[in-house]
């Protein structure tokens, strides 16, 4: 039984659960990065429950906060284009490669666009991945216009009639308007060739409440359709993703659980919620 479950067991069925016990539960919930607002709401609901299965009830409340939207990749037409965005160092490039590997292994043809022309050696990083997973990478020079590279990759994808084009982009902090505008441009330029079917925002699982601002502002800029939460192989529980779903109704689609290409999975609400209360 996890710590949280023990705590819940302590207060379960006792109307006389002491303030101290509740405090411990609050500590655990907050430690998951759910954020003070959601936690306050949860505690309030939990305190009303007496004699029932409090743990199940808390899980139910958490589940009710999740988005009802489809978690599979959007079907789209013949050719699907996925734009991958996020702040610096969250795991975009790695996720692009993992997603490509997973799509490829289920029989799809995939091309990658290396539109992070800003960070030193970012293009080479994606190329290394491309070789590893045996997927073509379209790139320009470092320092090239990212929109131009994205455009070239879309052109290439359209010629090749591949099933998926995945475009990696440079990390950018959402409070930098010029960089957000640049992202909008990348999107528009790609859409001159092929419609973008999906925009995936990569959120680092260790991120705190700032994840909400990231999701909100990236959504405003490029209409995020899904989230990838990375680094869930560590001690972080990634609760901010649930806060994002609850606030913005953007579904988490995938999770990253390591640096290898196989450390990637479709998001499963139940195991995620279990992890939050671990």
């Amino acid at each position: 039984m996890g710590l949280f479950n023990r705590l819940i067991a302590k207060v379960r069925g006792t109307s006389a659960a002491s303030a101290l016990d509740w405090k411990e539960i609050e500590v655990e919930l907050l430690a998951s990065d759910l954020g003070p607002h959601l936690v306050a709401e949860l505690l309030e609901a939990a305190k009303k429950m007496r004699g029932e299965d409090a743990e199940a009830a808390i899980k139910e409340i958490l589940r009710s906060k999740l988005s009802q939207r489809e978690r599979a990749l959007i079907a789209g037409g013949e050719q699907k284009v996925i734009l991958v965005v996020g702040v610096n160092g969250t795991g975009k490039t790695t996720s692009v490669a993992k997603l490509a590997a997973s799509l490829k292994s289920s029989g799809n043809s995939v091309i990658l666009g290396a539109a992070d022309t800003f960070r030193a050696a970012a293009v080479a990083q994606l190329q290394t991945w491309g070789e590893r997973i045996n997927v073509e990478v379209v790139s320009g020079k470092e320092g090239a216009e990212p929109a131009a590279v994205a455009f070239d990759s879309a052109k290439r994808a359209s010629e090749e009639k591949c099933d998926y084009l995945i475009v990696d982009t440079a990390g950018r902090l959402h409070n930098k308007n010029d960089l957000m505008a640049e992202l909008g441009k990348v999107k528009r330029v790609v859409e001159k060739v092929l419609p973008i079917t999906e925009v995936l925002l990569v959120i680092d699982g260790t991120t705190g409440q700032n994840g909400l601002a990231q999701a909100k502002i990236f959504s405003e800029a490029v209409d995020v359709t899904g989230i990838i939460v990375t680094k869930l192989d560590g001690s972080a529980r990634g609760g901010v993703a649930l806060a994002i779903e609850s606030a913005l109704d953007i579904p988490i689609k995938f999770i990253g659980t390591g640096e290898g290409q196989g450390d990637f999975a479709a998001f499963e609400p139940d195991s995620y919620i279990d992890g939050l209360l671990a």
Binding site: A31, G89, D204, T206, G208, G234, S235
Partner: peptide, 15 residues
């Protein structure tokens, strides 16, 4: 450490 890190900062820093 990334300034955006959440509650895991404590566990990770201790580790």
């Amino acid at each position: 450490v990334d300034a955006m890190i959440g509650q895991d900062a404590v566990r990770t820093a201790k580790a």
